[in-house]
């Protein structure tokens, strides 16, 4: 089939790759000139299904378990499998207990355990939770590499082009997949945006090997190490649909929390700030909607890199009219997920 994918965020590129791999002729059309308009450009890139389970339904865990393998195949070398460390300031240690009660896949660490894992945090936390099976990736490198791979393998990707321009007419394709994220608000019933803000800090004084989450009743935060001494610090969750600039209060809160994690972050350079809109449905779970030759993939909320693989494969399976691969079979994902995926499908 000739398939037109609208939107080159993580949802669009993952769908494009899954469909391309299934033998379809894929064209991706992105309105913006580059990736910077995509919410996934500002993402943390944590492949942390167990940590997310603390506040998300079981489906996020079940569908997210295969994400690290999927990305490692799609973009070899992109995935770092070093787990996730969760800590809390001494006065909020109760938050660790609560976090632990609501998920699984972790082991408790004492102060020595935390220090052994992340020497930079030695002496700073008495306890921690280690999610050994989790992984992370650099969203920007990964998106760029996946784009390059798609192009190298014969897919077409057009940036700065609207659907309808030069060869991008829906009529010349058998199927159109809309992956335009928050821009689909108004077209997709129930889709809203949840504002998120992030910072990029740069310092040679701190070394972390894995994402670290700092629990706090008011301002929970994560820090994801990136190459070149950079640290992605995120992220606020605000029920606002305004993109705009990062607010001073959010910067203050994120920096305060980063400083609480390690005082050396106070001396870091503030390399970047960013604000984006996460697309979300009322249940904060992604969905495939549509039928025939028109589909929409949307609502990844804060789980773009985590859930785009399972959604992309589910779409490819639907277009192939074959059952999903074993990793996505109902026994691992539950009826809730299938019901969700099949929304809007004609029997």
């Amino acid at each position: 089939m000739r398939i037109l994918v609208k939107g080159a965020g993580v949802g669009g590129l993952a769908a494009a790759f899954a469909l391309h791999r299934a033998g379809h002729q894929v064209t991706v059309c992105e309105k913006a000139a580059d990736f910077s308009a995509a919410a996934s450009w500002l993402a943390g890139g944590m492949l942390a299904p167990y940590c997310e389970r603390e506040s998300a339904p079981e489906r996020v865990l079940a569908d997210g378990l295969g994400a690290a393998d999927w990305w490692a195949q799609a973009v070899p070398g992109s995935v770092t499998r070093a787990g996730t460390l969760v800590v809390a300031p001494a006065r909020d240690e109760g938050e660790l207990e609560r976090f632990a009660r609501r998920t699984r896949g972790f082991e408790w660490l004492d102060a020595e355990g935390v220090a052994a894992l992340e020497p930079a945090l030695a002496g700073r936390f008495r306890r921690g939770l280690f999610f050994r099976e989790e992984a992370h990736l650099d969203p920007r490198r990964t998106l760029l590499a996946l784009r390059d791979r798609l192009v190298a393998e014969g897919a077409v990707i057009r940036f700065g082009m609207e659907v309808g321009e030069a060869g991008l007419s829906p009529a010349s394709h058998d199927c159109v997949v809309d992956c335009t994220g928050a821009a689909a608000r108004g077209r997709l019933p129930g889709l809203r945006a949840v504002r998120g803000e992030m910072l990029m800090l740069e310092t040679p004084e701190v070394t972390l090997s894995r994402p670290v989450r700092l629990l706090h009743p008011r301002h929970p935060l994560y820090v994801v190490p990136r190459a070149g001494g950079r640290f992605m610090v995120g992220a606020t969750m605000i029920e606002s649909e305004t993109q705009g600039l990062v607010s001073a209060r959010s910067v203050m809160e994120l920096l305060n929390a980063a400083y609480a994690l390690h005082p050396a972050f106070g001396e870091a350079h503030l390399a970047e700030t960013g604000a984006g809109l996460r697309p979300a449905f009322a249940d904060n779970l992604p969905a495939i909607t549509g039928e025939g030759g028109q589909f929409q993939i949307n609502g990844f909320y804060r789980h773009g890199f985590l859930l785009a693989p399972s959604i992309a494969e589910a779409l490819a399976a639907r277009l192939a009219k074959t059952p999903a691969p074993a990793t996505l079979a109902p026994e691992t994902s539950g009826p809730e997920k299938l019901g969700h995926f099949l929304q809007g499908e004609v029997a």
Binding site: R185, L191, R192, A193, R195, I238, E239, S240, E241, T242, G244, S247, A282
Partner: peptide, 22 residues
């Protein structure tokens, strides 16, 4: 306070975002 961040103050049909609709 926070959910209003950036909501326009000039419009006479200021209804906030999708969350407020909900």
């Amino acid at each position: 306070r926070r959910e209003m961040a950036g909501v326009k103050k000039d419009g006479d049909r200021n209804r906030g975002g999708a969350f407020f609709e909900m």
